[in-house]
Design a protein around this nucleic acid. Sequence first.
DNA 1: TAGATTGTTAATCGATTAACAATC
DNA 2: TAGATTGTTAATCGATTAACAATC
Lengths: 206, 206
Amino acid sequence: MSKATLNRLPVYLRYLYKINKLNIEHVSSTIIAEGLNLNPVQVRKDIALVSSVAGKPKTGFITKELIIDLESFLGYDNENNAVIVGVGGLGKAFMGYSGFENYGLNIIAGFEKDNQMIGNTIKDKPILPFSDLARVIKENDIQIGIIAVPSASAQEVADIMIKAGIKGIWNFANCHLSAPNNVVIKSEDLAANLALLSIQVKTLTN
Amino acid sequence: MSKATLNRLPVYLRYLYKINKLNIEHVSSTIIAEGLNLNPVQVRKDIALVSSVAGKPKTGFITKELIIDLESFLGYDNENNAVIVGVGGLGKAFMGYSGFENYGLNIIAGFEKDNQMIGNTIKDKPILPFSDLARVIKENDIQIGIIAVPSASAQEVADIMIKAGIKGIWNFANCHLSAPNNVVIKSEDLAANLALLSIQVKTLTN
DNA sequence: TAGATTGTTAATCGATTAACAATC
DNA sequence: TAGATTGTTAATCGATTAACAATC
């Protein structure tokens, strides 16, 4: 499955949630394509890759069935534990964000160097000392780590995570992270993304 | 310029910042490609599109010059004002985030329906009543709006923004937004992104 | 039945990669 | 000079789109 397809699947799913809320029981690739401004063949092919039952000519797919297939493919019905390092503004927001649960994602703890925060909880999730990071990752066999520290210390945090066994890092520090090939790094440079949106707006309005 | 190239430019820039910090004065496409695990020709072509001076055989580019070219192309040296609606965990984090400034981005105000928050400031940025949103957008000719409200009210907020003249929306509610074609919608479904990372980890380790 | 939608095969399009002469 | 890197042209690769028979 191509990366482009993989990125479109959550978009389809969001659209299906919307359709489902309107109590529309059947949905076709054509409808989805129109709603999302995409090519219907593209949607049809993407969906063919993940749907457990074939769509029926004329009627398409049963909305709820398709939702379940997509959720299952995207792993929303699995349990996935993660840790977060850096409980600043963004870190706090993530720890308090209830939206992750519906996606099978669970942040089990936050880590901080700031002694004042240690011992507190956010949504029942503890804030632990940074020195405990490696131990907690190993003991709980955590695979996913979220980095929300200033960019100056991001690489250091990544190194510790990787050494402790983390296989995927979601990095919110605006710096490039070095890592071995068997570790997936996904950097979300929020400010850069916002700037890209700004460029798109400018090219569209000119 | 292709969208793929546009998305790579901030990645190059981050890498150049790293190089520059190490006081490395010259940099070649080859070096960047090696550092980022990309194809050198791809990097060379991308950079040729944005660099103001030609690279020199054998030495490549002057790091600082290339940084300036990329920053200029990506609009980091421009002023760009934005508003944010929804001052919950994520909204607070964005309003307090100082990283936007280096990218020419400035959130001028946050908007809330919750009366208790109204009148407060975060980093000198006021929290205003939601009912003022349209007026503030029009008066300040704001083009970019950030949506950080629960998904149930996201479309309503988007409609008001668009009617008031917003041309680009950065949506953090996990729902699909409808908008006319002349408005750019960029949805960041954080939980979905984290789930995608989780899938990548699983496919890599299997 | 008629027609909308399906899955699939073929054609197109665009992006990535390879090859190479030019040059500092 | 020799060799690394450049910019550019050509080849490849993969993804998107078009075409079409099958079918509910």
